[in-house]
Each structure stands twice: as structure tokens, then as C-alpha cells.
């Protein structure tokens, strides 16, 4: 037996919960399927300092708990399932996880997950010194030397977080400047002055080296030079960006470099995908802004677009294919 709902929302980050809040208040009785990473990327962060309305910041996990409570308070139905297969060619759309669901309209807000370097030696030591979550695994590196790879907000935030735990943090970045927010960069440079952080500009990780106990060092390749160098660390945190979670929609929706492509024709709604009735919001279809606030905003837009779509569907004669 499958579960049918007018509107199903996939994902439990800012986009998914915001879509649910708007859809529930429009009386669409949405079902939100959380996915595996319940609460999304913000659940592995600490201070969120740019969420308006919290002048002194808010903890990421706390913010996501509040999003969920808000969605529940307006009667969103929440299902802790993980969809592994979809059929968007037939209507209603079919979604398969541990249970099977069907929906007249779908909002995809499955977000993005941490990207790794793609080295074989990196995979080998995942969980044994290679991590993509400083707030989860920083604990294991008290008074040890660790490295962070990347130059964006996540990398700098992780380096700052780890600098309070580890004996020393080396940030490895392949360019000669950071792309993180200026306020974060300044905090990092302060740590560099205090001797807690070193930045290796223009270097890339060539290999992760370790033994049975886990990671012991990294082999670094300086840009444009022959000679490699070794850096002795007991952990390395990869923070080089995120990849959109779109693999289950491949071949069914039009994509743009792995992100779900949005049809920005104003009369159809800005969040419509290449399939009528399927809308998308948040990082899964945003390669540019990727903020909690822009995700929440697009989640709201997707709910409004879905509401309009469902209203047209209701107005049509019953004979639909």
C-alpha cells in the first residue's frame, strides 16, 4: 500500500521546513520526508551569526529544532524516511523509501552533502582521521595537530572551531586568498597571529598517509612546484564544498552541472523544474547563494508555486492522465 498526499516535500533543511510551514498554512496538508541527514547541514555547525532576528547568533542545531517545531505546530506530517527511487514520469509521482509514497505535487529540497577530495587514501582513512565534520569529530583531536582543507566559509569555521581544541591547525588552501566572509577571515588571521593557526597557501593534498591507528601525515603538493612536502597531522578535515543531492533524480529532471535546473519563466513560478508539478528549493538547485536564508526563501516560493499548481489541477476536469 502506498501513502498518497497532495504535496510531498523531500528534505528537512531550511528549504524543506519553510516550504512545509507555508504549505501547511495553505491547508495543503503536506507530508515532509526528512531524508537521512535530519535537519540538514546546519545540524553540524555551531554558531549561525547571519540568521536575521538573532542579533547574538543562534546554534545551528537549535535553529533546526525550532524549524521542525514550527513545521509541526502548523500540522506538517513528518516521516523519517529516506527516498532511494523516484518516478516523476507518471502522475501521481511515485517515491520509494522504506515505504512507498505518491504525490500530486512534489517539492525537492534534498540539499547538498559534504564533498571529499576524491583520493583513494582519503577514503581509506575516513573515520580514522579523515572527517568532514569538525563539530562531530573535533573531540578526538584534543591537543593534537590537525589540518583543514579548503578556503570557504565552512573551512574557516572548522579551522576556528578546531583551533580551540587542537594544539595547532594548518589550513591548506589551493589558492592565494580565501573566499570566506571577511569577518571570518579576520578571526582566522587573528588566530594566525596568536600562533594557533598556520595557513598553507597554494597547496593541495596529494595523499593521506597513516597506519593502523589512523592518519599520521599528509603529503602536500605546492602549486607549480615539483617537490612535495610532508605535514605531520593526526587528523584532516575536508571542507572544500558541497555536492547537491540529486542522484535519484538523474535522467528524470533537467540538471545544470549536477544541480536541479529551474525553469525561471515567471508565469510558471521560479521554482518549477523541467517536470510540471515538481518544484525545487534550497541548495539542491542553487549553486550560487547557498545560504540558510536563501534556502528558506526559496522553500517559501516553492510552496506558493505548488499551491498554485494544485489549485489549477483541482480546477481541471477529472479526466487527467
Amino acid at each position: 500500500m502506498s501513502i498518497h498526499r497532495k504535496l510531498i516535500i523531500l528534505g528537512s533543511g531550511p528549504a524543506g521546513y519553510t516550504a512545509a510551514i507555508y504549505a501547511a498554512r495553505a491547508n495543503l496538508q503536506p507530508l515532509l520526508i526528512t531524508g537521512l541527514e535530519v535537519g540538514g547541514q546546519l545540524t553540524t555547525t555551531t554558531d549561525v551569526e547571519n540568521w536575521p532576528g538573532y542579533p547574538t547568533g543562534v546554534q545551528g542545531p537549535q535553529l533546526m529544532t525550532q524549524f521542525k517545531e514550527h513545521a509541526e505546530n502548523v500540522d506538517t506530517e513528518i516521516e523519517y524516511d529516506y527516498i532511494t527511487q523516484v518516478d516523476l514520469q507518471q502522475k501521481p509521482f511515485v517515491l520509494k523509501g522504506q515505504k512507498t509514497y505518491t504525490a500530486d505535487a512534489l517539492i525537492i529540497s534534498t540539499g547538498a552533502s559534504a564533498q571529499y577530495l576524491g583520493l583513494q587514501s582519503e577514503t581509506e582513512f575516513k573515520g580514522k582521521g579523515v572527517s568532514a565534520c569538525a563539530t562531530c569529530d573535533g573531540y578526538f583531536y584534543k591537543n593534537q595537530h590537525v589540518a583543514v582543507v579548503g578556503g570557504g566559509n565552512t573551512a574557516v569555521e572548522e579551522a576556528l572551531f578546531l583551533s580551540n581544541i587542537a594544539s595547532h591547525v594548518t589550513l591548506i588552501h589551493r589558492r592565494d586568498q580565501l573566499t570566506a566572509e571577511k569577518v571570518l577571515q579576520q578571526r582566522l588571521f587573528d588566530k594566525v597571529e596568536q600562533g594557533k593557526v598556520t595557513i598553507k597557501w597554494n597547496h593541495q593534498v596529494d595523499q593521506v598517509v597513516g597506519d593502523e591507528s589512523g592518519v599520521t601525515s599528509l603529503i602536500l603538493q605546492p602549486n607549480g612546484e615539483q617537490d612535495k612536502e610532508a605535514l605531520s597531522v593526526s587528523g584532516v578535515f575536508i571542507a572544500i564544498g558541497h555536492l547537491p543531492n540529486t542522484s535519484i533524480f538523474k535522467d528524470q529532471l533537467e540538471m545544470n552541472h549536477g544541480y536541479i535546473k529551474l525553469n525561471s519563466a515567471a508565469n510558471n513560478g521560479a521554482t518549477l523544474t523541467s517536470v510540471d508539478g515538481v518544484f525545487s528549493a534550497g541548495d539542491v538547485s542553487d549553486s550560487r547563494y547557498r545560504q540558510a536564508i536563501t534556502s528558506a526563501g526559496s522553500g517559501c516560493m516553492a510552496a506558493l508555486d505548488a499551491e498554485q499548481y494544485l489549485a489549477t489541477l483541482d480546477a481541471e476536469p477529472r479526466a487527467r492522465v
Partner: peptide
Amino acid sequence: WAEWCGPCKMMSP
């Protein structure tokens, strides 16, 4: 697991 680990909490159920 640990209380402060988000993914650990997600894994509990």
C-alpha cells in the same frame, strides 16, 4: 555516540 554530535542524534532512531 555523543550528545553534541548531530549525525549521532539522527542515527539514534
